[in-house]
């Protein structure tokens, strides 16, 4: 019984955490800012020769990129 309750609490906390992370990711993506951690991991894995930008640099680059192309928003 004790373990069951612990399991339940644990999965509840885990679920809430993932839910919150997803919500933050959605909110950022809706403003044109993709996941920074994922990008860093991608760079480390596939392009180890490139320098990893700081979050500030990454954010500025994405901010500029959002308002360059067509579309992105609707009437």
């Amino acid at each position: 019984m004790q373990t069951f309750r612990q399991d339940l609490l644990h999965s509840l906390r885990h679920g809430l955490q993932t839910g919150w992370q997803r919500a933050v990711q959605t909110a950022r993506l809706s403003c044109g800012v993709p996941d920074y951690d994922l990008y860093v991991r991608h760079l480390r894995e596939h392009h180890p020769e490139r320098t990893v930008p700081s979050y500030k640099e990454f954010f500025r680059e994405r901010q500029l990129a959002r308002y360059k192309g067509t579309g992105g928003r609707c009437c």
């Binding site: 990711q25 993506l29 990008y39 991991r41 990129a65």
Partner: peptide, 15 residues
């Protein structure tokens, strides 16, 4: 990692 990123379907839906 920037424009082309496999993303969770709920996140894509929200976006």
């Amino acid at each position: 990692g920037l424009d082309y990123v496999p993303t969770d379907k709920w996140v894509v839906f929200g976006h």
